[in-house]
Design a protein around this nucleic acid. Structure first.
Length: 486
RNA sequence: GGCCCCGUCGUCUAGCCAGGUCUAGGACACCAGGUUUUCAUCCUGGUAACACGGGUUCAAAUCCCGUCGGGGUCACCA
C-alpha cells in the first residue's frame, strides 16, 4: 500500500469557512491515523481575490486549530510549489499533452453566443449545457478562425458512456456522460480552469484520498473523466455532508452567517480542543454515547465509514457547552494567561501588569473559570471588578430597595470589614453571626450585599467577590449602594 | 428546469448494510426537583423523533417502489 496522502485545498477568499475547517480536520485526522501526509494547497488561480492577507487567514486559522500542514506553501515539501498560482509551468506541460491526444478541442464560440444559448435553453426548459458546436470543427475551420485572429478556449471532449464513482461516504454513484457538459478546461489565455488544475495537482502531488465537501460531487465526475483521459490513477473520493445554516437554509455563507467564518469562533476564543471536538461531531460520530474526545482519541477513532450523508446545522449551544467543559478542566495557569490576554484586549487591564494587578487577574481567573464558555467571555463577566462604583443592573437595584433597612444594614456590615480581609470561611462565619445578631436570614443579607459589591445578581461566591476588591473598595461600594438603598 | 445527494426528538446523532433484543439509546437546548449565599457546576427525573403512502415478510426505523420535502450543481469562479 502506498502512503496515504490527503490534501486540504482552500481558496483564499479572505476567511476560513467552518466547513473548510472541518474538511481540514477530517483530512488531518485521516492522515494522522494512517501515518500519511496532510498537505495544504492554495487554490489561488483567481488572481483577483488572491491577497497576502487572505492567505494568512488560512494559515493562521489552521494554526489556531492545531492543523498545521505537513507540506504546504509555508513549510514546503517535495512536490511543490503548493500554490496554484505558482504551478503554471506544470499545468502548461499537461495541457500540451491533453491537446495532443485530442482530449481537448478548441472552441471559438463567443461569450455572447454562449449566454444567448443558455437563455434559449432556459426558455425551452432544457438543461443548460454547451451544444458542442465546435466539436465538429474541421482542421480548415480551425485554420480559418485562427487566421482571423480568434483565440480559442479548450473544451473537454466527454466520451460516450458513463462514470461510476465509488464514494467512500456515499457508496456507488453513476452518472451518464450525456449529462456531463463539454466544459472549458483551458482559458483563451492558456491557463487552466479549476477542474483541470485540481486533477493535475492531485496527480502530481500524489494525492491518494480526497475528502471534500459535497458541493464538489458534480465536479468529481468531470475530474474522473480527465484523470482517465490522461491515463492517470484516480484517487479515492469521500464527499462530506455540507454544513447548513442554523435554520437549515442552505450552506453557510459569510454574508448571512457570521458563524460561517472561523474568526467568529477565534474572537470568542473557544477552547481550540473543544472546537475540534465539536467540529468532529458535525457529520461524524464514534458510537451512541461518546462525545467528549481528545485529539488523540479522535485520531484513533475516526473512520470515514462513520461519516454521515446528510447535511448538518450548526449547534452553537453545544459548542459553548463543550468548550465550557474543556475550560473548566483546564489548568489554572493556562486560564489565567488567557483571562489576562482578554482583559488587556478588552481595555480593563493595562500592560505591563504590576504585582497587585497580576494577583487580581489570577483571582478573577480562578473565580470565573467555571463560568467561562469562551475565554473572551471574561471581559463581560469581570467588568464589575473594574468600575467603581459598578454599573448597577436593574434586578440588582431591586435587591437594594425591596427590603426596608437595607441601607443601614449595608453600612453596619461595611464597618465590620477589617483590612486586610479575613479568609472566605472566616468572613462567612462572621457574616452569619452578623445576621443572627440582627435576627435576619442569610439570604436577606447576601442579595443586597452582592448587588452593592458587584452591581449584579449573578457571579462568584459573594465573599470571593469581596476579597477580590479588598476592604477599602468594598466599603466604598457598600456606602455608595447604601445611598441608593432603602 | 436537468442531473446528483439527502430525509430518526427543536438541534447533533446511535440504530439501517447483516429485519425481531427499539413501548427507538445518547448529547445540546428546554422543563421540574435536589445541592449551593446568587450564577455556574454537579445529581435526579421529565417533555420530545422513525416525512408520507404502498409493497415484501410471521415481523420493517431497518429491504423495495412511489410521493412529498430539503440540499447541491449546472461560468473562459474556485
Amino acid at each position: 500500500m502506498p502512503e496515504v496522502r490527503v490534501r486540504f485545498a482552500p481558496s483564499p477568499t479572505g476567511y476560513l469557512h467552518v466547513g473548510g475547517a472541518r474538511t481540514a480536520l477530517f483530512n488531518w485526522l485521516y492522515a494522522r491515523q494512517q501515518g500519511g501526509k496532510y498537505v495544504l494547497r492554495m487554490e489561488d488561480t483567481d488572481a483577483a481575490r488572491n491577497t497576502d492577507a487572505a492567505r494568512r487567514t488560512i494559515f493562521d486559522g489552521l494554526h489556531w486549530l492545531g492543523l498545521d500542514p505537513d507540506e504546504g506553501p509555508e513549510q514546503g515539501g517535495p512536490v511543490g510549489p503548493y500554490s496554484q498560482s505558482e504551478r503554471q509551468d506544470i499545468y502548461a506541460r499537461s495541457i500540451v499533452e491533453l491537446k495532443s491526444t485530442g482530449v481537448l478541442y478548441p472552441c471559438f464560440c463567443s461569450k455572447q453566443r454562449l449566454s444567448s444559448l443558455r437563455l434559449s435553453q432556459e426558455a425551452a426548459r432544457e438543461p443548460f449545457r454547451y451544444d458542442r458546436l465546435c466539436r465538429g470543427l474541421t482542421a480548415e475551420d480551425i485554420q480559418r478562425h485562427t487566421a482571423a485572429g480568434a483565440v480559442p478556449a479548450w473544451r473537454l471532449r466527454v466520451p460516450e458512456g458513463e462514470t461510476v464513482l465509488d464514494d467512500l461516504i456515499r457508496g456507488s454513484i453513476t452518472v451518464n456522460h450525456a449529462d456531463v457538459e463539454d466544459i472549458i478546461l483551458v482559458r483563451g489565455d492558456g491557463t487552466p480552469i479549476y477542474n483541470l488544475a485540481v486533477v493535475i495537482d492531485d496527480h502530481t502531488m500524489g494525492i491518494t484520498h480526497v475528502l471534500r465537501g459535497e458541493d464538489h460531487l458534480t465536479n468529481c465526475f468531470k475530474q474522473i473523466i480527465i484523470f482517465r483521459a490522461l491515463g492517470w490513477d484516480v484517487p479515492r473520493y469521500g464527499h462530506l455532508p455540507l454544513i447548513l445554516g442554523p435554520a437549515g437554509e442552505g450552506k453557510l455563507s459569510k454574508r448571512k452567517h457570521p458563524e460561517a467564518a472561523l474568526e467568529h469562533y477565534i474572537a470568542r476564543d473557544f477552547h481550540p480542543e473543544a472546537f475540534i471536538n465539536w467540529l468532529a461531531l458535525i457529520g461524524w460520530s464514534f458510537d451512541d454515547k461518546t462525545e467528549i474526545m481528545t485529539r488523540e482519541e479522535l485520531v484513533q477513532r475516526f473512520s470515514i465509514e462513520r461519516v454521515n450523508k446528510s447535511g448538518a446545522r450548526l449547534n452553537m449551544e453545544k459548542l459553548a457547552h463543550i468548550s465550557g467543559d474543556y475550560i473548566r478542566r483546564e489548568a489554572p495557569e493556562k486560564v489565567r494567561a488567557k483571562v489576562c490576554e482578554h482583559l488587556v484586549r478588552g481595555g480593563l487591564v493595562k500592560e505591563p501588569l504590576d504585582a497587585a494587578t497580576e494577583a487580581l487577574v489570577a483571582a478573577i481567573a480562578s473565580a470565573e473559570q467555571e463560568r467561562l464558555r469562551g475565554y473572551a467571555d471574561i471581559v463581560e463577566l469581570a467588568r464589575w471588578v473594574f468600575s467603581d462604583p459598578p454599573v448597577m443592573e436593574e434586578k440588582a437595584q431591586k435587591n437594594l430597595t425591596k427590603e426596608p433597612g437595607t441601607a443601614a444594614m449595608l453600612r453596619e456590615w461595611a464597618a465590620t470589614l477589617s483590612d486586610p480581609l479575613p479568609q472566605v470561611p472566616e468572613m462567612e462565619a462572621a457574616a452569619r453571626q452578623f445576621c443572627e445578631a440582627r435576627g435576619m436570614g442569610f439570604g436577606k443579607f447576601v442579595h443586597p450585599v452582592r448587588a452593592a459589591i458587584t452591581g449584579r445578581t449573578a457571579g462568584p461566591p459573594l465573599f470571593d467577590c469581596v476579597r477580590l476588591l479588598g476592604a477599602a473598595r468594598s466599603r466604598a461600594r457598600l456606602e455608595h449602594a447604601a445611598q441608593s438603598a432603602s
